Computed example of a mutant assay.
Amino acid sequence: MSIRWRILQLADSAFPTGGFSHSAGLEAAAQQGEVPDPKALRTFLEGVLWQAGHGSLPFLRAAYGPEAEPAKLDAWCDAFLSNHVANRTSRTQGRTLVSTMARIFSEAELQRLHAAVRERTLAAHYAPMFGFALRALAVPLEQTQELFLHLALRGVASAAVRLGLLGPHEAQRLQHELAEVQSAILERCGPLSLNELSQPAPLIDLLGATHDRLYSRLFQS
């Protein structure tokens, strides 16, 4: 099967990975008055993307290494995500991703990954699992990183619509306008190693950590 068809399938909003259950901290930010207007929302979305670039793309790159070990990268990610909400979200999304992909695709490496998740020998954090799963499908690293950034932006833009912060057409226009930012992030963060992991948007991380204390919640994070 052509790789491009697999990428299109994975990028489709109908692909059930559970990403739409999360807002990447946007719900908490909105309730605390941190995104009062479209300009603030755009700044928030850019922060989420840079956070993904510096805090997730290195795990994807490491997963494509010749000696990459799922357990080692998974443990590294678990230690990196000190925010309990972000950590829980990462594990939930990672497990859902691997389980869904193993049901659809038959690659042996993907089935072994799924078995490890079921046996709970892995916490199954999202970023390293995304890297290993896409590698198992023979998707090139750069396209895997592009897909990861696309899904990150699409998920938060969709959350903004459901939270009533903007309309569907506005969300699509914002995604279009942020394409250059995504390209800049890919160029800057695509080559980063695990020793260069960072969280460049600490306010987003702090806001996300308050999610469990919100009076009412639409999303899991």
Rank of each mutant, 00 (worst) to 15 (best):
S198K: 11
L141A: 13
R162H: 14
V139Q: 01
V181Q: 06
L203P: 09
T210K: 14
G208W: 04
H150Y: 12
S183F: 01
L151K: 09
L149C: 05
L178M: 02
H176C: 03
P202G: 10
L151E: 01
V181N: 01
P191I: 01
G190T: 08
V139D: 00
G164R: 10
L207H: 05
V161W: 09
S183I: 01
L214I: 11
A159C: 04
E180A: 14
L151Q: 12
P202I: 05
L174W: 01
P191R: 07
V181Y: 00
L178C: 04
E146V: 06
Q172I: 06
R162T: 10
H211D: 06
L163E: 07
L163T: 13
L186T: 05
H211E: 12
G190K: 14
A201R: 02
A159R: 05
G164W: 03
S183Y: 01
L197V: 08
L206T: 11
D212Y: 12
V181K: 13
R154G: 09
L147G: 05
A160T: 09
L207S: 11
S198C: 09
L165F: 02
L153H: 06
R162N: 13
A184E: 06
S183E: 14
L197W: 08
L149Q: 01
E180T: 15
V161M: 08
E177Q: 10
L203F: 00
P202M: 11
G164E: 02
E146T: 02
E187L: 14
R173N: 08
S198L: 03
Q145E: 15
H169Y: 09
R173E: 11
I204F: 02
S198A: 14
L203R: 12
L141V: 07
L163D: 03
L186V: 07
L203V: 10
T210P: 07
H169D: 13
L203I: 04
R154P: 00
S193I: 04
